[in-house]
Simulated scan of single mutants.
Amino acid sequence: MKENEILALLQKYQEGTLSNEDQDKLDAWYLHKASTSNLQLSDYELEDSYELLKSKLPLQAEPKVIRLWPRVAVAASIALLLGTGIFYFTKPKEQIIQVTEKAQEIAPGGTRGILTLSNGKQIILANISAKDTIAKEGEEVTIKMGANGVITYIINPDADASKNNPNAFNTLSTPTGGQYNIVLADGTKVYLNAVSSIKYPTQFNGDKRLVELEGEAYFEVAKNKNKPFIVKSDNQSIEVLGTHFNVHAYANESVVKTTLLEGSVAVSFKNQKSILKPGQQSNVSDNFTKIKIREVDTDEAIAWKNGRFKFDNADLKTVMRQLERWYGIKVEYRGDVSDVRFSGGTFMNKNLSEVLKVLELSNIKFKVEGRTIIVYP
């Protein structure tokens, strides 16, 4: 059919006057287009594109929508040629059929981690089934995957202690868009945020329990009065006997933040030591001359552990860095956003587009180009 004939049929559809014969002609035209297209969609995308097609047609009489291509097979075929876009009817200076791209959704992160053993072997944890034995470190330590997907270290009480390897360290790391949980040999629970790593001994011998952290983690330290638990991150050291706290120590963040939820911790930095009380947060930085302590909303500090984004007057770049780590995106700024602050939050299991809608409530504009997010003030 010629273009003017197609436009005439679409006009009749818009007016609700399309006859059965004309409807068959329009179906046939779409089917022909589908057969000559090399684009393919999944069943889900077909249905989604078809719904988008209907929403794009500027219908004037809503009750007349009832008979839009009633045959499901025909509807699917119509959607087939659309690829990631959709045909819709518009009326600029001259009537044409245009194609508009459907924005690709950027999905949230999930449970992903990499375990590096003392011999350098790396294990992708996403491929391990629950209750599997992942590896052994000598005769003394068995590493298992718990039923809830948590890595657990089990000490063999019958092993010959003289054969213990004091230098056996493992490292758990998470990629962009990954989080993972682990129970260390002493029973300490560690929740590791995205783009983070923790290095720890396979069993805690000696008079202290020392681990090294890069990135962010929440600790529930098993109590042991005779063996302090120490977390080293950057130039900071945290010493506890048994408590719950969060450490935020990313390389691309200028401030290392330690937030205490219960118990007490001693934060050491530049030959200084400060004791935190529950509800307090210490801030240390190479730009500071001393440790800064302030009262904070602890729910905000550990929101990530509970599957949420939560911000209280946070600057926009801090917010966007968190989205970069979770969604694997790159952020570019067009204009000065240094004075933009954001308060609020949403769930981390949402697609990025839904999170950006929340941020837009602060009068920020976003443009998505692939996996690059352009921010306009």
Rank of each mutant, 00 (worst) to 15 (best):
L213N: 03
E214P: 08
G215C: 05
A217R: 01
A217M: 08
Y218Q: 08
K223T: 14
N224C: 06
K227R: 11
K227H: 12
K227Y: 06
P228G: 10
P228Q: 12
F229T: 01
S233I: 06
I238W: 00
I238Y: 01
E239S: 11
E239H: 06
V240I: 05
V240S: 04
T243D: 07
V247Y: 04
A249S: 12
Y250W: 05
Y250C: 03
A251G: 12
A251E: 15
N252I: 05
E253T: 12
E253D: 15
S254H: 13
T258M: 01
T258V: 03
L260A: 07
L261G: 04
E262D: 15
S264P: 07
V267M: 02
V267A: 00
Q272T: 08
K273L: 12
I275D: 07
K277T: 14
P278K: 12
P278W: 09
Q280H: 10
Q280F: 10
S282Y: 04
V284Y: 03
S285G: 10
S285R: 06
D286M: 10
N287H: 13
T289N: 15
I291S: 01
I293R: 07
E295Y: 10
V296C: 08
D297Q: 09
D299M: 13
D299S: 14
A301P: 01
A301T: 00
I302K: 03
A303M: 08
W304Q: 05
K305V: 13
G307D: 11
R308K: 15
R308L: 15
F309L: 10
F309E: 05
D312I: 13
A314L: 08
V319Q: 02
V319W: 00
V319D: 01
R321E: 11
R321V: 10
L323Y: 01
E324W: 06
R325A: 08
W326R: 02
G328E: 04
G328F: 05
K330N: 13
